[in-house]
Amino acid sequence: MSEIGRSPTLVGVFVGVGWFLVFLSAQVAAFHVLDIRERFRAIVALLTATMVGAVLTTTTLAHIDRLGGSVLPALSGVVTMACLWVLYMPFYYVIATSLSVRTLLMLASVEEATLPLEQLEARFASAAMLHERLATMTTYRNVAAHGAVFTATSKGKATAAVFGVLKRLWELGPGG
């Protein structure tokens, strides 16, 4: 037990986990209380703020309890939070945007949990669905709308180029 308490890495990990829980709680609270349009930016801002909290906590702990310096616990805390965030975000996007999840929820909302395939396609493989997605992409400046016509912005083109290289490298084909 004393070995664990004296490990700067483990102290940083525990502090990081604690502050990540604060981040999750703050995100849920903020999304309920505020009407946030650019949610990804809000998430990054909250993560940054809680990471600062983790660094301050480890620095304070290092001063009151000889941990052999504050750099290693602070770094361990930040790395722990970054790792948890990297694992959390794909899960968040599944909850928020996955068409498969939306299909399950739409089926669950109707009697007998059954719908004709055409009705599902009309909702999830339609121009209306794509319009919604393009609106989000426009908000994040990956795409620009000129009337009814959409174009990739320079930011969008750069992203497309990077993933184009990866697709060729891994021989993935068009995908989507």
């Binding site: 794909p90 068409l99 794509l130 997605r133 393009l134 989000t136 992409m137 990956n142 795409v143 959409f150 174009t151 990739a152 969008g156 083109k157 992203t159 497309a160 180029a161 993933f163 184009g164 990866l166 697709k167 891994w170 993935l172 068009p174 995908g175 989507g176």
Partner: peptide
């Protein structure tokens, strides 16, 4: 997952 299944990314690549 993004490169092989991402809808937004595929749209972006098609537009680019």
């Amino acid at each position: 997952n993004l490169a092989d299944r991402g809808l937004s990314l595929r749209v972006l690549i098609d537009l680019a």
